[in-house]
Design a binder for these strands. Structure first.
Lengths: 188, 188
DNA sequence: AATTTGGTGTGATCTATATCACACTAGGCG
DNA sequence: CGCCTAGTGTGATATAGATCACACCAAATT
């Protein structure tokens, strides 16, 4: 059975055993308990993170103190504060664990090193990022032209697995709806 | 004086004259008048587009027939229906010109060809896309936790040039606010 | 067993924003 | 010239969704 990261990368391009071992040697492992922070507002964000096991949320806190969820991540997803990470700036979001979690960490330096040494992995990252870009555009469209109810229904369809593992309160915070409103849109 | 595309790409990595000519040979030029469509809902989207001159908007129409603006693009920006383009599916958005416009077109095939032949350009595209990803995340945060007024102010700060060239009605459609509301948030 | 913590539902109200309706202006074009 | 079209402002009203307040439950924690 292959390594989860290998399966993940090989959806885009194949690697030899030696290549994959080399790639993997640029990652470090981190284990976190429920409620622990992976990224904390104000700190540096040295790494991008590939989730091996667990579930996390990335949240942004508005001036009036309300938490909105930018992103979830479970097995096989990547998560970080990318703005801070790529610009080597202080984090403006928090990322914490909703379950016991294990991630692989890739530093900015190691990513650039791998990308310059191995064309194929830069290709992987480009394709991944393009797909991510498209997904974000879809989310923006959904925020712009769908009602709370429509967004909730889209979420349930798009992320059935995630739905099982998340309290509704958090889905609400992801959709930009109050938990009370979400709770009320059963039949309507 | 360098070609605008060259200047654009060399913000990320330098190219020799021969390399750049080779890159450029993979693009075609297209000129459009005001109100002409670059991408039309339901059609294929063979190309990504780099704007040499002019101004365009990408719009999505919701079920109830309202137009929301996903993206603007002026000189030096890229624009397409990326979901449709990358998946070779039918467009779900319209892209049309707000001014007389000239774009460079890059087909999916030519992009992949260039990327596989020239590691440096794949690097450029990866970095560009990462930056785009971060920008979209910022926009999502702004949609999730800012009021209409705050979003408008952020827009004015972030895109002063664009603001000059756009009617407020369109800025409203980009921000997800009705034009009447936008018109009312002067002092408040 | 008792208490805290996290999640949920639901009524009563409030408010930001949408909607509808109309008037005004400036510029392009027959 | 006079007629469209596009863009804008603003009043009156409607409404989706936020907020506040409370009750309830289940699973941890002590």
């Amino acid at each position: 059975m292959s390594h989860p990261l290998r399966i993940h990368l090989e959806k885009i391009s194949p690697f030899s055993d030696a290549e994959f071992d080399y790639i993997l040697s640029h990652f470090t492992t981190k284990k976190l308990k429920k409620h622990q922070f992976l990224v904390q507002e104000g700190n540096a964000v040295p790494n991008d993170h590939f989730v091996l096991k667990g579930l996390l949320k990335a949240t942004h806190t508005s001036q009036d103190g309300k938490e909105h969820i930018l992103q979830f991540a479970m097995e096989d997803w990547w998560i970080s504060d990318y703005q801070a990470h790529f610009n080597q700036a202080a984090a403006t979001i928090n990322i914490d664990c909703l379950e016991e979690t294990e991630v692989l960490c890739l530093s900015l330096h190691n990513r650039e090193k791998l990308c310059s040494e191995l064309h194929k992995i830069e290709h992987c990252f480009r394709v991944k990022t393009s797909n991510g870009y498209v997904a974000l555009q879809r989310r923006i469209i959904s925020l712009l032209d769908s009602s709370a109810k429509e967004r909730y229904e889209q979420f349930l369809l798009q992320y059935p697995t995630l739905t099982q593992r998340l309290p509704k309160t958090m889905i609400a915070a992801y959709l930009g709806v109050s938990r009370e409103t979400l709770s009320r849109l059963h039949g309507a």
